[in-house]
Simulated scan of single mutants.
Amino acid sequence: MAPGHETRAPAPPYTPSVKLLAWTLVTGTLLVTGALHDGRPPQPSTGQAFSTPAAPAVGHTARAADSAVRPLRPSPPLRLRIPAIGVDAPVSRLGLDASGALQPPPADRPNLAGWYGGGTSPGSVGTAVTTGHVDLPTGEPGVFYGLGSVVKGMTIEIDRADRRTAVFTVGAVEVYDKERFPDDKVYGSVGRAELRVITCGGGYTRGNGYQGNVVVYATLTAVR
């Protein structure tokens, strides 16, 4: 699970469950497949992929930079904010069910983000995984309905239980078909503090729901 570059590093601590986690995410059993509306959530453009240079930072953005930020000790996340798209959500710890699949955030709380508590804490060394619904079967937008409109340079803030706020800068936003989901790329670690924010995306059919996932890649660039 390499983080968007060719560099490989030792697998994260939750490696045994990673394949199941990836499959749960991309099949939509976690992140809702049955929306009843005809509109589609925004999807990332090719300009937000790793292969395209970032545009100059504006608005709620920050240049990802060369700032050396010391990673934090592990501490659970409490709240996730993406100011540029109006996300300000409480974070719930997610675990695995008996089959080893990631349990979903409750469908009756569309504004709740989830964090895989068996992995890395946001701000600590490694790749922290956060997820949330894009929409609900009723058609109501979920917490990450607008995730596909995130662009490089935007910031993601995570308040932690230790009263520190980890600030991440987006380096890429990509969408993957469920049959070709690059779990090594998405979940891997290169020895620094990384964050992934994942929701459903890609093509959509009423019979099978969303056909892939939107993945935001971000790196720790500040601590408050």
Score class of each variant (00 low, 15 high):
A68Y: 09
S121K: 11
G95L: 06
R93A: 13
A84V: 08
R79M: 10
G119D: 08
R81L: 09
G86I: 03
N111K: 11
G119N: 06
S75H: 02
R93E: 09
G118K: 10
D88G: 04
V129T: 14
A101E: 14
P104W: 02
D97T: 08
G86F: 05
S75N: 02
R109V: 09
A62E: 15
A62N: 06
L102E: 04
V91K: 04
G126A: 12
P104D: 00
L80K: 06
A101V: 12
A84F: 07
D66F: 08
A64M: 03
T61I: 00
A62L: 14
G117A: 15
G114F: 01
D88V: 09
W115D: 03
G118I: 05
A62F: 10
G126P: 12
L112F: 04
L78P: 00
D88T: 02
D88W: 09
P83I: 05
R73Y: 05
P104T: 00
G95C: 09
V69C: 01
L78Y: 03
R109P: 00
D97W: 05
D97A: 07
S121T: 14
A98W: 07
R93M: 06
N111M: 12
A107L: 15
V87W: 06
G123K: 15
A89K: 07
P104F: 01
A113T: 08
Y116F: 15
L78V: 15
A89N: 05
A128N: 11
P76I: 11
Q103C: 07
S75P: 04
G119Q: 10
I82D: 01
A62K: 15
V129L: 14
A113Q: 01
D88A: 09
S124G: 06
D108R: 13
T120R: 12
H60V: 05
A65D: 12
A64T: 11
P105T: 14
W115F: 03
D97F: 09
R63Q: 15
S92G: 01
N111G: 13
I82Y: 02
S92P: 00
P104H: 02
L72D: 09
A107I: 15
L96E: 10
L80R: 00
V87Q: 03
A98L: 14
A65T: 13
W115V: 03
N111A: 13
S92Y: 05
S99I: 08
R73T: 07
P110K: 12
P110D: 13
L102S: 03
Q103A: 10
V87G: 05
V91I: 15
G95E: 07
G114E: 06
A113Y: 01
V125N: 08
T130Y: 01
G100L: 10
A128D: 11
Q103H: 01
P105N: 03
A89Y: 06
L94M: 07
P122E: 13
V91Q: 10
L78A: 15
L72G: 03
P106C: 01
L96Y: 09
S67A: 10
R70H: 11
Y116M: 11
G123F: 13
P77Q: 13
T130R: 00
G95P: 08
P71D: 10
G118P: 02
G119H: 02
P77R: 14
G117I: 00
S92H: 05
G95S: 07
R81S: 12
V91N: 13
